[in-house]
Design a protein around this nucleic acid. Sequence first.
DNA 1: CATGGGTATAGCCGTTGGCTATGATGCTAT
DNA 2: ATAGCATCATAGCCAACGGCTATACCCATG
Lengths: 312, 312
Amino acid sequence: MPAQRPALDLESLRMLALVADLGSISAAARAEQISQPSASKRIQVLERQLGLELLDRRSRGATLTDHGRMVTGWCRTVIEATDALVTGSQALAAREAEQLSIGASQTIAEYLAPTWLGEFRRRAGEPPVQLRVANSQEVIAALRAREIELGFVETPQVPSDLRRRRVASDRLVLVVAPDHPLARRRQPLGRDELAETPLASREDGSGTRDTLRMAIGRPMVAPAVELDSNAAVKVLVGSGSFPAVLSELAVANELRDGRLVEVPLEGVDLARSLDAVWRRGTRLGAAAEHFMQTARPARAAAHRAARAEPRP
Amino acid sequence: MPAQRPALDLESLRMLALVADLGSISAAARAEQISQPSASKRIQVLERQLGLELLDRRSRGATLTDHGRMVTGWCRTVIEATDALVTGSQALAAREAEQLSIGASQTIAEYLAPTWLGEFRRRAGEPPVQLRVANSQEVIAALRAREIELGFVETPQVPSDLRRRRVASDRLVLVVAPDHPLARRRQPLGRDELAETPLASREDGSGTRDTLRMAIGRPMVAPAVELDSNAAVKVLVGSGSFPAVLSELAVANELRDGRLVEVPLEGVDLARSLDAVWRRGTRLGAAAEHFMQTARPARAAAHRAARAEPRP
DNA sequence: CATGGGTATAGCCGTTGGCTATGATGCTAT
DNA sequence: ATAGCATCATAGCCAACGGCTATACCCATG
């Protein structure tokens, strides 16, 4: 059997994907600015680590084997996630002389902003972007203080001195582990019942928690546990101890493959729109305008929302 | 500004997540079986590469900074994707003396199986799993030939000598780049119109293409381009040249952040169920039974399907 | 104030991953 | 046919990187 946990490295994965795209190891080596033997070796090492033949070496280049096709698919997921991390971090780190400064609330910053930033940067001629992360109120404050030019918030409450434009939609969902009693529940949970259920919850002041409190609209029982990140909450929920209410964006993958299960609700509207906001009156700079464009297939987003949320 | 593209390595990302979980660098070092200074250095290097302070070093341990929280979140996505890659590859590589042998069609193998395998392996006492990837027909054949004990297919056509159980649902969607003319389309595309649209398509024989052909039920115009992986199709669609019909599983992320846009359809039913299948009559082995359990929050899956696909 | 957890620095050493040079292979064109 | 030209693999060299031990520092707590 292979080593405990093969010490994969990202460069090799990139290399594999590049070979798949370009059709030869040499071409991939050129693209990555390294010598052909190095590239060749990387792939060999990767194959050995995974215990799979990934490439069919032909004298006219190299093509993926069936296994290679699978692995490359998984590689791309990793690469995409890595790019999100890098792009996101760069935007967080951007400090001085940057041309476009934006702000975003937690959930948006974590799940949507990195790809937007990536898309945006790919366009030629666009300036680097600085990203500030804060809760919705702080984003609005920063906007007024002209510290940022464009904001993204999860709040329904946008004051009238700001303009808004919906860029995506989101809803909170009640999730539990598959072996939790509530997982088998067919009939929806009512608002009162939800209000009395002790949840694993994000910390006070988080957009997620605010939204829930507003939607319930009455006093709720105190959370069973408070944690300061979506990931921590998800882990706890997965362990089966408690339910939680989280953004669909945060749990989409888990719901898809069944690691978490959604519990139907009734009488609580947990849908929320995610909006771009900016100062009314000011004309948005070209860069900001373009950034909003990359973030916003507005029409389609509205359509998808309608489909996902059939209104009574 | 930071180096072109920081050469991140996965071990460091794992380390960061572990520090976040355990609350101290030392603890994380112990967990990873390396010395404390090495762990410390890794984090430092990572911080330098990203240009961010990630940890607040206090004398009672280390806690995440705000930036650290963000970065850790992104890290976990990378780690999860990596684990999927490793687990998937190991299941592909498993050769001899394995105890449980399963088969899956492409889409399931690529997007769902890795997490199932991961979950399953985490349970104590379960045997290693060998995964074979093939199209639905071949999975069924392998089942009959007793080469695999359990299969997962995307076909509606399951012969009567097999039993089936729905484990998830899926639908194909028509997607285009956000700047493609069809992206602004509000009123749904009809079946005939779809049949006449030249698409970027998976190769002949792929489950995705078969499903589409059956759903349309009449001759279609030939595909504009044929490509042999979902990723390749997605890239081409993203470039704006052609629309494509792909599994929702394959494009969920792109739809979420707007890199691709879904075009509404009408009069074509592209929903399909993803089923576990096994030989009628034979009692499933314990391991196979358990595996199916991890793959299947059936009730919830059905519920979610109902919500996502309002039947006329 | 000492103790003990935590973290950072210094300096050493083996492994790794890059490079160049070279050989083998098989398509392609003359 | 055969020469030419891609491709990929192997060999051997060297620098850089990542691990280790030893040690210093810092700060809570008893």
